[in-house]
Simulated scan of single mutants.
Amino acid sequence: MTLTILRYPDPGLTRTCAPVTDFGPKLREFADQLYAAMRAAPGVGITAAHVGHFLRLVVLDLPELGGRRDFVNPQILSQSSEMMSHQEGSVSMPGAVDIVTRPAAIRLSYQDLEGMPHEVDMSGFPAICMQHEIDQLDGIFWLQRLSRLKRERLIKKWQKEQR
């Protein structure tokens, strides 16, 4: 089954996701399909919400993490006071990018696809990506992290390019 990525301004992109409670083989199969959709987009991170499944599942594919990593029910436990600015975008809004500032490091708790709990420290680009994806799980589309003026300009430009 091929997953279809929701496109901005789909209302699903502002929905809060429910915790994953079923850690059976269907979750692994879904995570594999999510990974394939992300690679095809192309992107380096995706959530279940991006394809209209409102569960707390994130797939990242970053060299800094050793390639593909699956994060079920991720939660930020702490974050650094040091901030970092980085260009962000979304598989749901291809071609649109802007600079977002976020904490440079986080401590994260999550479960793997089997339901085993883990904690990990992330810094730099992986920390930025994870915060971006957790925002999506919380119904916060990345545009909401921009000033109103920057957001309106970016949306207008992106809509023009989509025509």
Rank of each mutant, 00 (worst) to 15 (best):
M1W: 00
T2K: 08
T4H: 13
T4G: 09
R7P: 01
Y8N: 07
Y8D: 03
P9Y: 12
P11S: 14
L13I: 08
T14Y: 10
T16N: 05
T16V: 15
T16D: 08
A18S: 12
L27I: 11
L27V: 12
A31T: 08
D32T: 13
Q33M: 06
Y35T: 14
A36I: 03
A36T: 11
A37P: 10
A37M: 07
M38T: 03
M38Q: 03
A40F: 04
A41T: 03
P42M: 00
I46G: 01
T47W: 00
A48Q: 00
A48V: 00
A49I: 00
H50I: 02
H50K: 01
L57K: 01
V58E: 00
V59Y: 01
E64P: 06
L65P: 05
G67L: 01
G67K: 00
F71P: 04
N73W: 00
N73E: 05
Q75V: 08
I76V: 14
S78D: 14
S80Y: 05
M83G: 11
M84D: 09
M84I: 14
Q87E: 15
G89L: 02
S90L: 02
V91Q: 02
M93S: 09
P94L: 04
G95C: 11
A96R: 08
A96F: 05
V97E: 14
I99M: 12
I99Y: 08
V100W: 06
V100C: 10
A104I: 06
A104M: 09
A104C: 09
L108G: 13
L108T: 13
Y110T: 09
Q111G: 07
D112F: 11
D112G: 09
L113D: 08
L113N: 08
E114W: 05
H118D: 11
E119N: 12
V120K: 12
V120S: 13
G124N: 13
P126A: 10
A127L: 02
A127W: 00
I128N: 06
C129S: 09
C129I: 06
H132C: 04
H132W: 01
D135T: 04
Q136N: 10
L137W: 03
D138H: 06
L143G: 07
Q144V: 12
R145T: 07
S147L: 06
R148T: 14
R148V: 14
L149D: 11
K150F: 04
E152T: 15
E152Y: 09
E152N: 15
I155A: 11
W158F: 07
E161R: 15
R163P: 07
R163D: 14
